[in-house]
């Protein structure tokens, strides 16, 4: 069978128009979706980078206790153990982002959300946490307690 040349050209034209139509539809969709997705992406806000904070005076913290300290926008757990020594760790559980606490009855750091436990060196010892807590450096300046990023 011989193809009619005029019909062939018409088919080519139609295919070309289809391509233009589909292509421009996608371009049109993209021109709508792209700004919407970009709009929904929260802009990066420049936060003041906190390197150290003053947690308070030594006398503010009883032996065998833990306190959450604001470290910029993050919580840090400051622990004073039974011997009066200070240690600080990120208070954000490495499992699913809950805020941990010091439990003097366990002698451990505990996360109430999924029963994760860390020892007083921040090591994950029981439950679901996959990693140790990030440690912070505690220094004493006279009577003041300073917490630094390690």
């Amino acid at each position: 069978m011989v193809e009619h040349p005029a019909r062939e050209t018409q088919k080519d034209k139609r295919d070309f128009l289809k391509l233009i139509l589909v292509g421009s539809s996608f371009a049109w969709l993209a021109s709508i979706i792209y700004p919407v997705i970009s709009y929904l992406k929260p802009p990066k806000q420049s936060e003041v980078v906190v390197k150290s904070v003053k947690a308070g005076k030594i006398s503010d913290f009883a032996n065998d206790s833990g306190t959450i300290i604001k470290f910029g926008s993050k919580p840090v757990l400051l622990i004073r153990n039974a011997n009066g020594e200070f240690k600080a760790f990120s208070a954000t559980c490495t499992h699913l982002d809950c805020t941990v606490q010091y439990r003097n009855d366990f002698g451990l750091i505990w996360c109430a959300c999924h029963n994760g436990k860390y020892d007083l060196n921040g090591r994950n010892v029981s439950g679901p946490p996959p990693r140790p807590l990030e440690a912070f450096v505690v220094t004493l300046q006279g009577d003041d307690i300073l917490i630094h990023k390690s």
Binding site: I68, K70, S73, P75, L77, A91, C98, T99, V100, Q101, C111, A112, C113
Partner: peptide, 10 residues
């Protein structure tokens, strides 16, 4: 309060 630990029994 973002600066309070998760309460027990959550």
């Amino acid at each position: 309060d973002p600066f309070m630990p998760a309460p027990a029994g959550i």
